[in-house]
Write a protein that binds this DNA or RNA. Structure first.
Lengths: 177, 177
DNA sequence: CAAATATAAATGAACGTTCGTTTATTTATC
DNA sequence: GATAAATAAACGAACGTTCATTTATATTTG
């Protein structure tokens, strides 16, 4: 409902009807409407983080580790477009609470980056700059892919492993000493 | 209203009251609520595009042209945080209509990229990959800056011209032959 | 083992608001 | 006196939430 019609598209009555359940039943499991959305968001984010960290070793070489994360993230987005759209919508709405970010994920990332810097695999950078170069391009490509026709009047953009590898190599080039 | 409470925070009654106007008056100038939001979005996007293209010459050297755009975009976001937040919210909502993207802007960008490729200033790339590397990091940095504390438990991230230049140099390194 | 009781889960109906939108009328401008 | 702009009031529909009640499940008792 939220993905297709925005937050306004989710009403407790419609949700109850769609779930084949009474409206009051929802309030047994969720304090109120906002709590429902927040719990759903937390749940989806946790699944995404787990998928992103699958087979990821923070001690691995930077190139290898970043590639694992890119492919994980890309695959998850492709297999769960609704989840992706929903979480992106929350992240760009006033509902988003930055203090609730998964710390397990952050720690793994910090370890990974600092190890890579120690080993001289990438140049030392503020984490935000590192993040903006290492991940923002991936997100953008995934969005282009999901939007199918990325730009009007152009052929649809299909993100495949070849394009991922090309972009990844450029990103790594930027971060290499 | 939308920035502070989401789309649900904008009601015609509350808007009329805030504007010191009757509800019916709004319907003289806007077909309905959605038309109001779409017109507001189009207006804000046009202002942003104009600000981004200020002093930008599509024929200029790639490094120079990209820097102009980055600084323009960054400054506009800083000076108009509400506009930024609002448009980002629309872009990540089902209201967003990809077919309404400003073509003037797209043409300027295409010309700029192709000239740079012709002059061998950057490697040839699909436009989407170019875009994801050339701009996504900037957006991410601006978001970090606006979010003040980028990641919990870390000092607030302040985006200044020095950090912009550093990131820009890395991005250019990635795109250079 | 069945009946009785206690506990938990689920419900339909209703609450008072607020929603987006319209219409008949008044006010301002030319 | 005509045209345009603005309004107050009202519309039914839908909203989030609650509550008294019913249904289902588990436990105890005779």
């Amino acid at each position: 409902m939220i993905v297709e019609h925005g937050f306004e598209g989710l009403s407790m009555h419609k949700l109850a009807k769609a779930a084949g359940v009474s409206v009051a039943t929802i309030y047994i499991y969720f304090r109120d409407r906002e709590d429902l959305i927040q719990q759903l968001y937390a749940e989806e984010m946790q699944k995404m983080v787990e998928a992103t960290l699958r087979d990821f070793n923070p001690e691995s070489h930077f190139d290898e580790g970043l590639k694992v994360q890119w492919l994980n993230r890309m695959n998850y987005c492709f297999e769960n477009p609704y989840s992706m759209f929903f979480t992106e919508q929350v992240k760009h709405s006033p509902l988003f609470d930055r203090s609730n970010i998964d710390t397990r994920f952050l720690h793994a990332m910090h370890l990974f980056v600092h190890r890579a810097i120690e080993r001289n695999e990438i140049i030392p950078l503020p984490v935000e700059i590192y993040w903006s170069i290492a991940f923002a391009p991936l997100y953008q490509l995934v969005k282009f892919h999901i939007a199918k026709s990325s730009m009007p009047g152009r052929p649809p953009f299909i993100l495949d492993e070849e394009k991922i590898n090309l972009t990844l190599s450029l990103v790594i080039k930027a971060l290499k000493p």
